[in-house]
Computed example of a mutant assay.
Amino acid sequence: MTERHGVLPSQTLRRMIAEGEIRADTPIIDAQIQPASLDLRLGQRAWRVRASFLPGAGRRVADRLPEFQMHEIDLSGGAVLEKGCVYLVELQEALALPGDVSAAANAKSSTGRLDLFTRLIADRATEFDRIEAGYQGPLFAEISPRSFSALARPGMRLNQIRFRRGQAVYSDDELRALNAAEQLVNGPAHIDDGLGFSVDLSDAIGDVVGYRAKPHTGLIDLDLIGHYDPADFWEPVTAPRGHVVLDPGAFYILVSREAVHVPPDCAAEMAPYLALVGEFRVHYAGFFDPGFGHAAAGGSGSRGVLEVRCHEAPFVLEHGQDVGRLVYERMLERPDILYGADMGSNYQGQGLKLSKHFKTPPAS
């Protein structure tokens, strides 16, 4: 019989925890388990490092850390991760994966929307956010606040990990068939190496189409939800001519023109377009769980929030311009929980939306 491939669902993650394939000194809680991923928790120890690094083949993070660390930080009473600095934080979770299970990580949505650049590092890693099949060892998060300094404590969940057996990415032909059956997008489906999506800059003169991070702001306590006034951290962006000029180094929150749907038997990941379309990046938090935008889970299609940073030169971003794509994968089996209202998901049915730490701005 052919071995089944796919992303491992919530019920399998619980079994892996029970069997010690995912383990932690502090018990893993139900709130960490998502339909197709597991939230990872910050540990107590962190290090300010002078540069981002990977351990490299055959080498442990702990062996390389003395080369780059500047000082050790105890997060137990809360510690400020300063804008413009790079930190390495031990995570509470560790892995003892079976030989046929690999993993990939990504920042959580709220992390990306705060411009907290967060990546997973494992022993012997030659890539960020990728875990080889059969990996046994600790996990670390590299955190580099780009726009706002942040107050961090142990147990905070800034990134998440998705496990898979084999590869189960939908081909374009398979994705077209899935779209015909499930309607993955509220309009024509542009499928080319995934489901394409574009940016929405269509609002009338004076309407807000996005937000740009202010350069000099106060501290954000990552435990405070619905607490901060957006005006203290963000300036609204308008597009009276249907375009926005992106400034190099600035960080923007925009939204996709399309509302997308991830059926319960699928998981998706946002991937950026190549730099051939412009010197900017869209994608700092990219996992879309089964049930995102799904009607039975309280959605009717949800738009993707875009975390945008321009690089070398000012760039004109036009309404309807292609900016990224969703890559769909099969689940190994349907998860026993879905993204949506029943889980208290923060972004089901979303439009343009800042992270959960901010009060909801008044309607424009």
Rank of each mutant, 00 (worst) to 15 (best):
M1R: 14
T2W: 12
E3M: 15
R4F: 13
R14D: 04
A18Q: 04
A18F: 00
E19P: 00
D25N: 08
I29S: 15
I33K: 04
Q44Y: 10
R45S: 06
W47V: 05
V49K: 04
A51Q: 06
A57P: 05
D63Y: 04
R64M: 14
L65M: 09
E67W: 10
F68K: 04
F68S: 01
Q69R: 15
Q69N: 11
M70Q: 14
E72Y: 05
D74R: 06
G77R: 05
G78K: 00
V80P: 08
K83D: 03
K83T: 13
A94C: 13
L97R: 08
D100F: 07
A103K: 04
A105V: 11
K108Q: 05
S110V: 03
R113M: 01
R124L: 08
T126M: 13
I131R: 08
E132L: 11
A133E: 11
G134F: 12
P138Y: 05
F140L: 12
A141M: 08
E142I: 09
S149Y: 09
P154E: 01
G155V: 09
R157M: 12
G166R: 04
A168S: 14
L175P: 10
R176A: 11
A180P: 04
A181L: 11
E182Y: 03
E182A: 15
Q183H: 05
Q183V: 09
H190D: 13
I191A: 07
S198M: 05
D200H: 07
L201W: 01
S202V: 08
V208Q: 00
R212S: 12
R212A: 11
K214V: 06
P215R: 00
H216D: 15
G218Y: 12
L219Y: 09
I220W: 07
I220K: 09
D221A: 10
D223C: 14
D223K: 15
L224V: 07
I225V: 15
Y228D: 07
A239I: 12
P240W: 03
R241P: 00
A250N: 04
A250F: 00
F251P: 01
F251N: 00
I253W: 04
I253P: 11
L254S: 03
E258C: 00
P264Q: 07
A268V: 03
E269D: 08
L276F: 15
V277N: 13
E279A: 15
E279K: 07
G286F: 03
G286E: 00
F287C: 06
F288T: 07
F288S: 07
P290D: 08
F292N: 06
A297G: 05
A297R: 02
S300M: 11
S302K: 06
G304E: 15
G304N: 14
V305L: 07
R309L: 02
H311V: 07
P314R: 01
F315M: 06
E318D: 14
G320A: 05
G320W: 02
Q321L: 02
D322R: 15
D322S: 14
G324V: 14
G324C: 12
R325A: 10
L326G: 00
M331W: 00
E333T: 14
S345I: 10
G349M: 06
G349P: 10
Q350V: 10
F358R: 02
K359R: 15
P361T: 08
P362L: 13
P362H: 03
